[in-house]
């Protein structure tokens, strides 16, 4: 089974990404079982410290996903998230965390297939890092 030992924390916004993950479920799109989704109202709610805390607690990967640019339920939350997370991503190597373990991306409420694909490829990418190290 792919992703058996890989544990990922996913912070998903309620309006787009979380609904997209639900959509993938409704279409019965099989995914690796390591993803643990935490629902937040907006990707802008995701404090970078939460991401770091997840790594500190032993997450193999952290994914943040919200609405596509321009589609934020609150107007600008995903733009703020993007600024924070982009910086965070650049900081990770300094903390000894491979940048491949962190990913942020946008998924709309109707993109179930896209969500399933993201979980698959992100899980694989982390497994590659694990094997490489």
């Amino acid at each position: 089974m792919p992703g058996k030992d890989v544990k990922i924390v996913g912070f998903l916004c309620n309006w787009c990404a979380y609904a997209g993950a639900d959509m993938a479920g409704m279409a019965r799109m099989e995914q690796p079982a390591g993803m643990r989704i935490i629902r937040v109202p907006c990707s802008g709610r995701v404090d970078p410290l939460l991401v770091l805390k997840a790594f500190q607690e032993g997450a193999d990967g952290v994914l943040v996903s919200g609405c596509h640019p321009g589609d934020c339920h609150y107007g600008s939350g995903n733009y703020l998230a993007r600024r924070r997370l982009e910086l965070l991503g650049r900081m990770l190597p300094a903390l000894g965390i491979e940048p491949e373990r962190f990913h942020y991306t946008w998924v709309s409420a109707s993109e179930g297939a896209r969500w399933a694909e993201i979980v698959n490829t992100f899980t694989e990418a982390i497994k590659d890092v694990d094997e490489g190290s």
Binding site: A21, A24, G25, M26, Q31, A33, R36
Partner: peptide, 20 residues
Amino acid sequence: VNIREQCSWIHADTGEATMK
């Protein structure tokens, strides 16, 4: 707790799904 759309419907292995 979402154990349908984000669990039972997307996993085939009972052990893994139950653990999750």
